[in-house]
Nucleic acid binder design. Structure first.
Length: 205
DNA sequence: GCCAACGTTGGC
DNA sequence: GCCAACGTTGGC
């Protein structure tokens, strides 16, 4: 289930990501991410309905996004699932990383739009992560609403020209988005469990 | 469908 | 290595 309508794989570039405009990843502690998916292809509801509410998040064909997926996601990390190219676009729910490190199988499948003739099983180019749905957003958080939330001005998603389909989210952004989505109460990702209680009013007595 | 913002390709 | 052409993303 391609997250992106897997575009033609680009030619193999120099392996490691240049640092340039790469959004920063929190070095320690729980990490948070946002992944984009076109709901007509694979929606949060599809993830929710998947066996074990889990699926291999495949179809990533951008090197920077791949590097986050391959090198930085860790089991237990929290993930905002964002619907792109949708009406409206926005955050539909929360997932968590279950496993990382597996090659994206669609790169080996000539019938898949994600097929990459340069990839071999010995030398895969693209990777996937196992994601498990944790909670629907009681309130779908539309992009327009996200733009209006104080504290999210610096969020990668909201920056002009930002197109990464896997991007880091800070702990602060995570807290703000969850609270606004009606998920202020603890969400059962390991990452969220580790999260320090913040100034948000989400501590039930 | 339009188009801005990028990433990639390929000629030189 | 430069950079114009082209392709893709994704909001609108």
């Amino acid at each position: 289930m391609p997250r992106r309508p897997a575009s033609r794989p680009a030619a193999a570039p120099p392996a490691p990501a240049p640092s340039g405009a790469r959004p920063e990843v929190t070095p320690r502690g729980p990490r948070y991410w946002l992944v984009k998916t076109e709901p007509e292809t694979f929606s949060f509801e599809d993830l929710w309905a998947a066996p074990g509410r889990t699926t291999g998040w495949d179809g990533i064909r951008n090197y920077q996004a791949r590097n986050f997926l391959r090198d930085d996601l860790r089991p237990g990390d929290g993930v905002l699932v964002y619907h792109s190219n949708a009406t409206p676009s926005g955050v539909a729910g929360v997932a968590e990383v279950v496993a990382v490190g597996a090659p994206d199988p669609t790169q080996f499948d000539p019938r898949s739009p994600g097929f990459d003739p340069k990839a071999t099983r010995a030398n895969p180019i693209w990777y996937q992560a196992e994601l498990r749905a944790v909670a629907r957003a009681p309130r779908f958080l539309a992009l327009e609403e996200l733009r209006g939330l104080p504290g999210l001005a610096g969020m990668a998603l909201l920056r002009r020209g930002q197109r990464l389909s896997v991007q880091p989210v800070t702990a602060e952004e995570w807290g703000i988005v969850l609270a606004a989505a009606g998920l202020g109460a603890p969400v059962a990702t390991r990452a969220a469990a580790v999260r320090r209680p913040g100034p948000r009013a989400d501590r039930s007595r």
